[in-house]
Simulated scan of single mutants.
Amino acid sequence: MIEQRNLVIGGLLLALVGGTLWLARQSSLDESSHAAQEHRADYYLEGVDSTMMDLSGRPGKRLVAERLTHFMDDDSTELLQPRLTLYDLDRPPWRVVSETGWLSGDGEVLLLQGAVKIDRSAAPGVRPLHIRTRDLRVQPRDNYVETDAQVNARSNADRIDAKGMQIWLQQPIRIKLLANVRGRYEVNP
């Protein structure tokens, strides 16, 4: 009878040890699969300066950033102090500057986060334009930008304030102000 009782206790202990080992192994597998899906950088670059040429061989777009950090899990890229230049054939280029940025893995969406400045210099037949806003969504391939934030635009002595904006930066340039638009225009006598 004692041998049977020791055999039962031994079997229960053996089952308990086996169950514990099985649970430990399952937990380890769960942690390793979670670690594989973790959003970690696989490389970074400092002092980035990249120019994309158009079909005729002239500069089309230029992206400069203090630091670029790439993430393998979704192929996205984070940018520190990005500066985007969109060149126009016959006019001064558009310059867009922000505090930080995020570029999707397919390159279709660039989110410029924090304070954003959009500037175009004056040229013969072209007025200067300076826009201040926040959190700009850019579609680089289409030269399109938009924001839902407050927008302040200045051109010479004229100014416009609005809530939200869409801009098509290719010819013909179009700017659509979305809400609460107020403007002040200076007329030269």
Rank of each mutant, 00 (worst) to 15 (best):
G60Q: 05
R58F: 12
P140R: 00
L111A: 08
G60D: 11
V116C: 11
A115S: 13
T77V: 09
A115R: 07
E99N: 06
R62H: 08
R120Y: 09
R132C: 15
T77N: 05
T51R: 07
V48H: 14
P92L: 04
D106H: 01
M53V: 05
R58H: 12
H70C: 09
M53G: 12
D106I: 04
I118R: 11
L112N: 06
W102P: 05
R120C: 12
G125R: 05
R83Q: 12
L103M: 07
E108K: 11
V116L: 05
H70A: 13
H130P: 15
W94F: 08
S50N: 14
D88F: 10
P82E: 11
F71G: 09
D142S: 15
E66Q: 07
R141A: 14
R120E: 13
T51N: 10
E108W: 03
E46R: 10
L86M: 07
L68M: 09
I131N: 11
T69I: 03
L68G: 12
G57A: 05
D90G: 13
V138N: 02
V97R: 15
S104L: 08
K61D: 15
L86W: 05
M52K: 09
A65H: 03
L111Q: 08
G107I: 01
E78H: 02
A123L: 08
S98V: 02
R58M: 13
D75N: 11
T100Y: 06
L86D: 09
G105Q: 04
T100V: 07
L63P: 03
G47R: 01
A115F: 04
L79P: 00
T69S: 03
L79K: 00
H70R: 04
L112D: 09
G47Y: 02
R95L: 13
D73I: 13
S98G: 11
M53W: 02
R134Y: 08
L111T: 12
G47D: 03
L80T: 08
P92W: 01
I118F: 07
S56P: 09
K61C: 14
